[in-house]
């Protein structure tokens, strides 16, 4: 499988543009349908305006075993509000009505996709404007499942590289990857530990020996200062848990969103973006 053909896509154009402007990428994650479809649509649609360069939308799953408490809870809120895989694709279609340039990557677990049907899923992704996939529980050993069909259809396949990915493994992990590489800065699940910037510098340098794709660093980033210091060591940063925690903090006791939820979330994101831009 050759992923080299994906050279002119929303993702490659975005990173090329950022490079030209000498800027780092700000990648924001939120779970599709959290806390409900309409609120989630407002949240996602406002991200580019708030300074996000690339959007990751989580497909809710009942058993997100690689995620920490914050993202698990967001997945459960979305499921409780009736979110499904087809509705997640609809969310992307809604977003694309007004934005044809911001890259969107779907992040999730394999089972909902497997149930939906791989061919149908890949087709629906391309037709609704998805640019790439991060499927957490599909390592290179299982590339035939979804990675190969996705690449054939023109979707980027983005994989997580971790501190435990040693030299013997790194080449197979980077094989088939395109768009960008997502480096997980800590051992553990999402949102639980703070990434250490010294370690990031060394890890990013090591990754550069193996890949020319941009490297985005995530897991454990919360504050604008931290975002900026991590961004200085890499090509971009990813924030997820902090955003979904803020969504949670803006729900009432019945789980219904406060009226100003989108403004609150977007203004936090704007702060991060303003800090990343200085990196």
């Amino acid at each position: 499988m050759n992923s080299g053909s994906l050279t002119d896509t929303r993702i490659t154009r975005k990173f090329a543009q950022l490079k030209k402007q000498n800027r780092k990428a700000f990648v924001a994650f939120l779970t599709g349908g959290d806390p409900d479809y309409d609120t989630s649509r407002s949240l996602v649609c406002g991200l580019p305006q708030a300074g996000v360069d690339l959007i990751e939308v989580g497909i809710p799953f009942s058993d997100p075993m690689a995620d920490g408490p914050a993202i698990q809870a967001s997945s459960q809120r979305a499921l409780k509000a009736g979110m499904t895989l087809p509705k997640t694709l609809q969310l992307i279609r809604d977003f694309r009505k007004n934005d044809d340039s911001t890259p969107i990557v779907l992040m999730g677990y394999y089972n909902p996709i497997y149930r939906y049907g791989v061919d149908r899923f890949v087709h629906e992704c391309t037709s609704s404007g998805v640019d790439g996939l991060i499927i957490v529980d599909l390592p290179p050993e299982e590339d035939k499942e979804l990675c190969d069909p996705a690449l054939t259809a023109g979707l980027h396949w983005i994989r997580l590289v971790t501190p435990s990915t040693d030299d013997s493994r790194i080449e197979s992990v980077l094989h088939n990857v395109s768009g960008f590489v997502y480096y997980i800065a800590v051992l553990g699940v999402t949102g639980t530990r703070r990434a250490i910037t010294d370690h990031i510098e060394i890890a990013v340098a090591r990754l550069r020996e193996y890949t020319d794709f941009p490297i985005a660093v995530g897991f454990g980033i919360k504050t604008p200062e931290h975002a900026r210091s991590v961004a200085e060591k890499a090509d971009g940063i990813v924030i997820g848990s902090a955003i979904v925690d803020l969504i949670k903090a803006n729900l009432d006791n019945d789980g219904l969103p406060n009226s100003g939820i989108a403004e609150t979330v977007h203004s936090y994101i704007r702060e991060i973006a303003d800090s990343v831009i200085q990196a």
């Binding site: 075993m65 690689a66 394999y110 957490v136 529980d137 599909l138 390592p139 050993e141 299982e142 994989r159 997580l160 590289v161 971790t162 435990s164 990915t165 040693d166 493994r169 992990v173 997980i184 051992l187 553990g188």
Partner: peptide
């Protein structure tokens, strides 16, 4: 069967 796990777990399992 197979090995459907996150990359964080792969080295451990191997």
């Amino acid at each position: 069967g197979g090995r459907f796990v996150a990359e964080t777990l792969m080295p451990l399992i191997l």
